[in-house]
Simulated assay, not measured.
Amino acid sequence: MGLQSRLSAVDQKIADAARLAGRDPGEITRIVVTKFHPASLVRDLHSLGVREAGENRQQELSAKTAALADLDDLRWHFIGQAQTNKAVAIRRSADAVHSVDRDRLADALHRAAEDDSILDVLVQINLTDDPGRGGVAPERADALAEHVLSLPSLRLRGVMAVAPLDEEPASAFARLRTVADGIRSLEPAADWISAGMTGDFAEAISAGATHLRIGSAITGPRPDRG
């Protein structure tokens, strides 16, 4: 199956899941995650109508945005764990950062503003019991959201999470929805829920996800990096 066929198949499944959940498929943004794939694949995706791309690593994000600078209608989402010392490079290349999980990172992204631009950010929620995983604990999400709201160069758009491997996705995303509702009470415009990947996006849509992060189901297997 070629790239266009994979993209069409995933979009059809997204639309079917949305209708099953009583939602308008047009409310859902599909982000194609292009981790380890070359910039040429992103250009091919753009020619097929893709306008939202995601990267996990700052180095790849920076390289691809530079190589594809002529595609000025392509929005880049940074979805990986971010180090504060990479904040300047991330801010320079990303239109949205989904993985803000601590005050220091929010502060670093704010300080990295080079002009009066506004960066869209999401609070990443850790839905596991492992504090070493990326994301803020659900009970601390409101405090982090309030801190982001205090930084004028950042625009809080909502929440992001990855479903734990040892929990049913529907249950995990229901918990995320509760956190999202709490943050929306602080900032009504923070209505993004970034949740759902190739294996669980139907459950995410049912729980109210607005942004899906789909990788290999569209791009195909990741290239051998060795």
Rank of each mutant, 00 (worst) to 15 (best):
P138T: 01
G215H: 04
G226E: 14
A172G: 06
E167P: 02
S206R: 15
L48Y: 07
G215W: 09
I118R: 13
M1P: 09
A189I: 07
G54N: 04
S5M: 11
I14Y: 01
A96F: 13
D103S: 10
E52P: 00
Q124H: 07
R23H: 12
S99K: 10
G182Y: 13
L151P: 05
H98W: 07
V136I: 12
A63M: 06
D107R: 14
L61V: 01
R19E: 03
N85K: 09
I31Q: 05
L109K: 00
D103G: 10
T29Q: 13
V32G: 00
G22R: 10
L68C: 00
D101A: 09
S62K: 14
G132D: 14
L7R: 04
R75Q: 14
R91E: 04
A207E: 02
K13H: 09
Q59W: 09
V179W: 00
F78A: 06
D115Y: 05
P38F: 06
F78I: 04
G158R: 06
R184Y: 09
A18F: 03
T128Q: 04
G22T: 12
E114D: 14
A112D: 05
D11S: 12
L119K: 11
D103K: 15
E27I: 02
R222W: 13
S40I: 01
A170M: 04
G54A: 02
K64E: 02
P164D: 05
L122P: 09
T34R: 07
A39N: 09
N85T: 07
D103R: 15
I214K: 01
A170W: 06
L3C: 04
F78L: 11
T65M: 11
P131A: 13
G220N: 03
G208C: 10
L156N: 03
A18W: 02
S93P: 02
G22E: 12
V162M: 15
I28D: 00
T219C: 15
A66C: 13
S194G: 01
T219V: 00
L119D: 10
G226I: 05
R102Y: 08
I14L: 09
D191H: 14
A174R: 12
D224L: 14
A143H: 10
S216C: 08
S40A: 15
R140M: 09
